[in-house]
Write a protein that binds this DNA or RNA. Structure first.
Lengths: 238, 238
DNA sequence: TCAAGCATTTTTCTCGAGATTTGATTAAGC
DNA sequence: GCTTAATCAAATCTCGAGAAAAATGCTTGA
């Protein structure tokens, strides 16, 4: 695993079996294939992912890094549980880090940065058009481009650590968004928000850009808070 | 490894060999026993730490979590390299997170929190007195109490994620401080700073407390920046 | 009927050996 | 003399089996 993989979880070519299993497992957890709180038995999963027991253990250990898997003492591995409080924490911390990174980007970003933002926004807009037409299977693509757009915005920040932490948190919030009850159709408003964010950023209006970004991120919080609270306590398999 | 271990790296009783090796390795890296950039050969280390090869691999993988060890492709493990830019990044990000956490603590902290801050400050003060008398071997103890004080200050923050990230960064900066050329005698001024920080916090003066904390953290940065720049490029063993 | 203690079964954790890949040394060719 | 290729050694990655621990079910007794 390269430093890039360490600091960004980028989807590089898996050069080792551990990496491969790690990436597939991570995707499956984020997409909800493995439910929150679910026990992850090495014996079962090693067949499912076609690797040895030791290799799978190492992959699970790497997922502990991302806080997508928890492990305690001698009692094996488990998909990280979810809670409203946790999602609120993730969201607010994301705001703190991402606004700071955006501030730095706007201050320091050059032509290359602007170009990458323009490009990412363009790609995202196209995906949102297709989404409005209710094309099936485009959600996956939108998800990737949305992330790419957010990453482009802060890519001129010189702080590798902020970007590293931001990646972890984005991953976390993506899992929350994808878990069924939260899953909501991507509305038309989202595009307007992205447009406003894009405009303010390119205009180098730091105050306005960070303000929009804050609202944008916090919006996802409302949807979750409207969920029935017993969802979290109800279906945990112990 | 418990959730506590995941989110705080707390020095809990090592319930498993992997954990034990992980903790000892981490301490040795932070203390500079394994120099930055040094290659970590599994075959050598497994004897040194009295565990099997697979077990040591898992411990190293956990250290990748903390960004104390890096690994690329099929080329094994290596102690994370150091650089001035990295330390500056660590320090500034620490300021961002720690001031926010302190802000939250001051706003939300109750009597229990105040009590823990008072207690931690008292312990730290005693350690600083002993340090002024040039007692040998007290640096270790001061290091622990200093960390405990900083943790107590932000312990009333409800954000587990901020505290988690703060832990990682504190660990990182501790390594930088301990690596020989940076190693500087703990001066008397430090105590005055801690005192001021303590006073402002208990007075619930958010603005003043965060301001002092910022200066306090940034101070360590100056010392490093005064170092000869070729230190970083010079002794890297490749 | 319920609780407590014991035995069984499952699962995790640990280890050493085999298969691949990387890096280094040496030799050949231009 | 310098670059390129091939051979060899070292280290990493991978796997399955054995030891330790935890979870489960069953029997026994009140």
């Amino acid at each position: 695993m390269s430093e890039a993989a360490l600091l960004s979880n980028a989807a590089a070519e898996p050069k080792t079996l551990v990496e491969g299993a790690y990436q597939r497992l991570r995707r499956d957890i984020i997409e909800g294939v493995h439910a929150p709180g679910e026990k992850l038995r090495v014996e079962h999963l090693k067949d499912q992912y076609d690797v040895g027991a030791g290799t799978l253990r190492e992959a699970l250990l790497l997922l502990v890094t991302d806080a997508l898997v928890v492990t305690q003492g001698q009692r094996g591995f488990r998909v990280a549980p979810i809670s409203i409080a946790d999602f609120e924490d993730i969201t607010r911390t994301r705001v703190l880090l991402e606004t700071e990174a955006l501030r730095q980007s706007i201050t320091l970003g050059g032509d290359d940065w602007e170009a990458s933002v323009v490009a990412a926004f363009h790609r995202l807009s196209r995906a949102e058009e297709k989404l409005a037409d209710h094309d099936p299977g485009t959600t996956e693509e939108w998800e990737k481009r949305n992330r790419a757009f957010h990453e482009a915005l802060i890519s001129a920040s010189p702080s590798r650590w902020i970007r590293h932490f931001q990646n972890i948190l984005y991953q976390q919030s993506e899992r929350y968004r994808r878990i069924s009850p939260f899953r909501q159709p991507i509305e038309r408003d989202i595009h307007a928000e992205h447009q406003a964010l894009f405009d303010a950023t390119l205009a180098r209006d730091t105050t306005r850009a960070t303000s929009i970004l804050t609202e944008h991120i916090l919006r996802t919080l409302d949807a979750v808070k409207r969920m029935p609270t017993d969802f979290f306590t109800g279906k945990k398999k112990l």
